[in-house]
Simulated scan of single mutants.
Amino acid sequence: MATIDLKGKIALVTGSSSGIGRAIAVALAAGGAKVAVNYLRSREDGEETVRTIREAGGEAELFQADVSKVDAIEALVRAVEETFGAGVDILVNNAGHLVRRCPNADMTEELYETIMDVNFKSAVFVTKAVLPGMKAKGGGAIVNLSSLAAHDGGGPGASVYAASKAAIVSYSKGLAKELAPAGIRVNTVSPGFIGRTAFHATFTSEEGRKATVGRVPLGREGTPDDVAGAVLYLVSGLAAYVTGETIEINGGLFMR
């Protein structure tokens, strides 16, 4: 039976300086992968992710890039490939942001583009950039991060964010069909209410948190490690026959 053994694999996790991205990077490194940690603004947080991995005996390097910009994406992937000496085997498109809550009546073109670029465009073009290297290696695994908001529309003022995360689900299914002949699997994880993240610290009140957790059948909020565990499964040999799938990680709050 297959096991989780990522030794020799090169993994790129976008937006991995903190929260869910950090947990994913740490989990992949614990599985044996060499991890490219990506950050946008906080180098200190990115360095903390790298330090956590190295102190546990893993291998990681830090890369700054705004993955909503195509030129920055292309430079990022080149730097990762040059640093590790080969193409990416595992891509986790984790970078994303609500940006701010805004009712549609107040939506501007600039805000719309910012939300769509960080949540959807980033996944499309980071994927494009790693594909030549992945195909040259004869296969790979891609995991895209969606959200419970993709299914229920999200909270107040989050309709465009929710739409961007719904786009991730459809995109991943189409991409899974497109890349299957190249031996590349594509799957999605869709987190629900995950605590201990900057997202909810910024956008969710304590009252809202308690109300949401009160509706979760498992009786608690999720943790970044809950999401990381699903990603680790999807990129491993345990999921060798899984592609085009979306795994919901929400404690039973939403069941398909």
Rank of each mutant, 00 (worst) to 15 (best):
I53G: 09
T223M: 12
A129Q: 09
A176H: 01
A11G: 10
V186N: 05
M255N: 04
G252W: 13
R43F: 03
S146A: 13
A65I: 07
E82D: 15
E206S: 10
V99D: 05
A198M: 07
R78Y: 04
G214P: 02
G15Q: 06
G15R: 02
A79S: 14
R41M: 12
E61G: 09
M255S: 09
H97M: 09
A23M: 05
A79Y: 01
M255V: 15
L62K: 05
M255R: 10
S68W: 03
M116V: 15
M1Y: 12
L218Y: 07
R215D: 07
A136Q: 09
D89W: 05
N187H: 05
N187A: 04
P217E: 13
D71C: 00
S236A: 05
V99C: 07
L253C: 03
I90C: 01
V99A: 08
R43Q: 15
G133E: 11
N94W: 07
Y233P: 00
N119M: 06
R22M: 11
D225P: 00
N144H: 11
H200P: 00
T212L: 12
H200N: 15
V77A: 11
N38T: 04
A180F: 06
R256I: 10
I90S: 01
N144S: 07
G244D: 08
L62Y: 03
V213R: 08
A72I: 01
F254P: 00
I247T: 13
F63N: 02
A182L: 10
L12P: 04
E110F: 07
Y241F: 14
L76V: 11
G219Y: 11
V99H: 02
V26M: 04
D71W: 04
T14G: 05
N104T: 15
G15A: 10
A27D: 00
T127S: 13
A123V: 14
D66Y: 10
L145R: 09
E74L: 14
V70T: 14
D152S: 05
A75F: 01
F125E: 02
A162F: 04
I90N: 02
G21R: 04
L175I: 08
D45P: 00
M116W: 02
I24K: 08
G87R: 07
R41Q: 14
R101F: 04
E248S: 07
V13K: 06
G192N: 05
H151K: 13
G237I: 06
G85F: 02
G237Q: 10
R220A: 13
S236K: 10
T114A: 14
G58D: 08
L238E: 12
F63G: 06
T246M: 02
V88R: 01
A65T: 05
V118M: 11
K210C: 04
L218R: 10
D45K: 15
T204V: 15
V231I: 02
T14Y: 11
M116H: 00
R54P: 02
I20M: 08
A162Y: 00
P132Y: 11
V216R: 01
A36G: 14
K210E: 15
N94I: 08
L238I: 03
E48M: 08
I24V: 14
E178K: 13
E82L: 11
G192S: 12
R220T: 13
G183E: 07
E206C: 06
H151L: 13
R220H: 11
R256C: 00
T114D: 15
A240E: 14
K210L: 12
